[in-house]
Nucleic acid binder design. Structure first.
Length: 416
RNA sequence: GGGCAGGUGGCAGAGCGGACAAUUGCACCUGACUGUAAAUCAGGCGCCCUUGCGGCUACAUAGGUUCGAAUCCUAUCCUGCCCA
């Protein structure tokens, strides 16, 4: 399911390939976020065209609407949203954290008050796995729980304990589902080549089951999540506990929740060494370009973050510095007055649609006028910036120049 | 010509003797967003400065009453509606 293709000699950075039923995912990789089954303002085909190989969608949101049963009827989330690449689904664990007081946590699971209609729902580790099976994602995550920052040791201990218990229950449920009969295979379609058959070659590994996606069935991987907040011993403990359960991949969670960046990197360093070397490691919810580069250096293989898409909607554009300007990148807020009569592209070296066709002045006007096109152009631009960043990272690792690249992104530049 | 209502910061529109440099919305300026309750949120928005329970100038214009006026009185100008 995952192979390491090349290791950097000076850092823990590496190239790898995650094999899924929906194609190979070349790491280090960035997953654009499509929480509700859509990358806001972007069509799936566009994203694929730009080279994205895997996206992230959210169990909680899709469960609430339109419901996983409906998505299963549609032939799985890939089919429903016409995304040909791989899908990584978050378990709903983050909503336990972000929805705050609308949520009650108990050992059994999490009680949510729906943000849609106020009704009460209970999400358990088992339900999360079931929903993700219905969604048919390629990679499913276990339900986890974590405190914000700062957290007391007691809270962090509780979170580690609960996350491990929930991980065991998720695995148990995932195994049960893997042995069920597969219903509703669309007429005229067969098991995908490389799906079921591949399963035979892969040791009956924990965390792999069958999943429907309407175009053939293949293994859905279940990945574990580690917690531990800012406590070194708890990070290690959580990593070891989750590692022992034997997942197809691992997520480092509970980071970028308000802690200083250095704390996050410490958490990675206190976690990564205790996870299986030959398994993919995902850093949940991270981050800025420089954080991603640094995390790659610490052995992280995949990332997801709302930054490029959300900030795009808020008018922030990411721009690489030109070689003659130094290295790294900077950002601009397109709504700034100084761009009012700036009749040049956001970045004339950028291959994105907006940079090829429109000026800063025009895009600023679109934002000022609340024309949806502005948001769309910004989202396209930032996603391409992030995808390009990952491409550069991969190329650099291949060429043995990763350390050099990582220095370039040591910090965000304050230019304009 | 007569009657009535009204003129407040870029706009709309509160306030109707002191706690008003003046509620609020819009516009405008700036910032923040990290497994998306987020096309959201926060701050600023008369001028000056050593940024302070600071100074100055302001609620159509000019006077007046008052310890004190955007708020009361008088006149003037202007706007809207109604009657001739």
């Amino acid at each position: 399911m995952f192979t390491v293709a090349k290791k950097d000699s000076k850092t823990k950075a590496r190239r790898g390939i995650i094999r899924t039923a929906h194609g190979e995912v070349h790491t280090p990789v960035f997953l654009p976020i499509g929480t509700k089954g859509a990358i806001k303002s972007i069509a799936a085909e566009e994203l694929k065209f730009w080279g994205a190989e895997m996206i992230l969608a959210n169990t909680y949101h899709l469960w609430q609407r339109p419901g996983d049963a409906l998505i299963a009827k549609a032939g799985g989330l890939h089919n429903f949203m016409n995304w040909k690449g791989a899908i990584f689904t978050d378990s709903g664990g983050f909503q336990v954290f972000s929805l705050g007081k609308m949520v009650k946590i108990a050992d059994a699971g999490v009680k949510f008050q729906s943000d849609l209609d106020g009704s009460t729902h209970i999400l358990t580790p088992e339900a999360s796995v079931q929903i993700q099976a219905n969604l048919g994602s390629d990679i499913a995550l276990v339900l986890d729980e974590f405190p914000g920052f700062p957290a007391t040791k007691k809270q962090a201990e509780q979170s580690v304990k609960r996350t491990t218990e929930w991980a065991k229950r998720a695995i148990h449920e995932h195994r049960k589902l893997s042995s069920r009969s597969i219903p509703d295979l669309p007429a005229g379609q067969s098991f995908g080549v490389g799906g079921i058959r591949d399963l035979g070659k892969i040791p009956a590994q924990l965390g792999e089951t069958l999943s429907g996606d309407g175009k053939g069935y293949a293994a859905q991987q279940l990945w574990g999540i580690t917690q531990g907040s800012t406590f070194k011993d708890l990070r290690k403990q959580s990593a070891e506990e989750i590692y022992k359960l034997g997942f197809a991949g691992y997520c480092i969670g509970g980071v970028a929740v308000g802690e200083p960046s250095e704390e996050m990197f410490k958490a990675i360093e206190n976690t990564q060494p205790f996870l299986e070397e030959e398994k993919p490691k995902h850093l949940l919810g991270v981050g800025t370009p420089e954080q991603i580069v640094q995390a790659v250096a610490l052995g992280c293989d995949s990332f997801d973050c709302v930054i490029p898409t959300r900030e795009a909607r808020h008018g922030k554009f990411y721009i690489n510095l030109k070689p003659q300007e130094g290295s790294g990148y900077f950002t601009i807020n397109i709504d700034n007055e100084k761009f009012k009569e700036d009749f040049i592209p956001v970045d004339n070296a950028c291959p994105c649609y907006g940079c090829g066709n429109y000026t800063r002045a025009y895009i600023r006007h679109l934002f000022a006028s609340q024309e949806p096109l502005g948001i769309r152009l910004a989202t396209m631009h930032n996603l391409r910036f992030y995808l390009n960043l990952m491409e550069r990272i991969r190329t650099a690792i291949d060429a043995g120049g990763f350390e050099n690249l990582s220095k370039k992104y040591a910090a965000k530049k304050e230019a304009a």
